[in-house]
């Protein structure tokens, strides 16, 4: 399990990276944290002509608050996200999800942009990104463009990034007051990709649900925004019955795959269970209960 030969570049600035991408005409791959890409290379399941390592581009690594949003440089380490006081305070759903991404030693290298660009449907970040309607900034030869979650995830491990584009920034809206969050995940072992995961952020006004943001991982080729469940909560309120109804509608919305670890029916069932748990836990937090 040794990687095939490749050409290697590790520019310290973005522009030369873009120039290299253009030069290799789709035959190069961006190497970010490498926690998936290097494994694929070791298995020889991918064989790019060149790797363009963006780890030395310092200015792609930052976490900042700007215009009511949390902006993260694409090469920000998951470990930095995990331990960032800003993230914990302003977007705790992201902090909670981060702790479920692999293990600490893989989060040391793994990056938020790398995870989103890899677009594994069972991964946590794409679900959070989808739930919160995040934005991605991609830089290409013609400058920057901003992509929303819906257009970004196009299919199984396929994104809207063009071969000559680099992901440079991830933007997520900050959580506002009277909101709660939860990332519920079921995996067979600690640290594994989820069989099913559900990201939830629920904001309340008194007994009413102002906004519900829900998305599931592991139930299809891309992260799945659970709109029907969101609508149920926003229209029918936050009674137990309404939460159960929302969870049922979440499950209905899925068309999950069957694989070695779980059947489609079981995944659909888990979507209901985890959606219900995620909403309940998020709600308790929104109401200021410690859970």
């Amino acid at each position: 399990m040794k990687p095939p030969a490749f050409e290697y570049h590790d520019p310290v600035e973005l522009e030369p990276a873009l120039e290299l991408l253009r030069r290799y005409q789709g035959e190069a791959k961006i190497l970010a944290g490498g926690q998936s890409l290097l494994a694929l290379l070791n298995f020889r399941l991918t064989r790019p002509v060149a790797l363009i390592d963006v780890n030395r581009i310092r200015r792609l690594s930052y976490i900042k608050e700007q215009d009511g949003r949390l902006c993260l440089g694409a090469v920000t380490r998951q470990r930095a996200v995990e331990f960032s006081p800003l993230v914990r305070e302003k977007l705790p759903l992201l902090a909670e999800a981060t702790r479920l991404v692999g293990h600490l030693p893989t989060r040391t290298r793994g990056t938020i942009g790398g995870s989103l660009a890899h677009a594994d449907p069972a991964a946590e970040y794409p679900a959070v990104f989808s739930a919160l309607d995040g934005e991605l900034v991609a830089r290409g030869p013609n400058g920057e463009r901003v992509l929303g979650a819906r257009e970004f995830f196009q299919g199984l491990m396929t994104t809207a990034l063009a071969p000559d584009e680099v992901l440079v920034e991830v933007r997520l809206p900050l959580m506002t007051a009277q909101c709660g969050w939860a990332f519920e995940e079921f995996s067979r072992r600690q640290g594994d990709f989820a069989i099913v995961g559900v990201a939830a952020q629920v904001c309340v006004v008194g007994e009413r649900c102002k906004t519900a943001r829900l998305a599931a991982a592991g139930v299809g080729p891309t992260p799945l925004r659970l709109e029907r469940a969101e609508q149920t909560l926003e229209q029918d309120g936050l009674s137990e019955r309404s939460i159960a109804e929302a969870a049922a509608r979440a499950a209905e919305q899925t068309e999950p795959p069957s694989d070695l670890h779980a059947t489609a029916q079981y995944r659909r069932h888990l979507t209901r269970v985890l959606t219900q748990r995620a909403i309940s836990r998020a709600l308790a937090r929104a109401r200021g209960e410690r859970r």
């Binding site: 290097l38 390592d53 030693p105 893989t106 040391t108």
Partner: peptide
């Protein structure tokens, strides 16, 4: 395992644990 799961190759990189099978020497 050479794919980052077993952790036998874990070392500290700049003081933080990381998989040395998922890093290139040049990095």
């Amino acid at each position: 395992c050479e794919h980052g799961i077993c952790g036998a190759c874990t070392i500290l990189v700049n003081g933080e644990a990381a998989r040395s099978c998922l890093m290139l020497a040049v990095q």
